[in-house]
Amino acid sequence: MEHRYLKNVVTLKLDVEKCNGCKMCMIVCPHNVFIVEERKAIILNKDLCMECGACAKNCAQEAISVKPGVGCAAGILMGMLKGTEPTCDCTSDSGSSCC
């Protein structure tokens, strides 16, 4: 059964003008958000994006922007308590680590 998370929340943006159709975004995306047709990438399933940032990181044309981060409530809480950005690094004091 397919998992679906909240709609219309992700920060993913694609500047089609800059795209050269290299397909890298399609290759690295773990949720098939992109397809490439006629040498241009298209965002097919925006709501499936988990903002991992792999596409933007591997876009040599810098056509993709996304605010990457971990969708981890415990990490966000830890960040709030420490006054930092959301962190996946719960290893330091709780003795357990996420992921």
Partner: peptide, 16 residues
Amino acid sequence: TGTSTYTSLSGVLKEM
């Protein structure tokens, strides 16, 4: 959400 493989930071923030 942190263990799951499909939640986005924006989504989790909204939920929280």
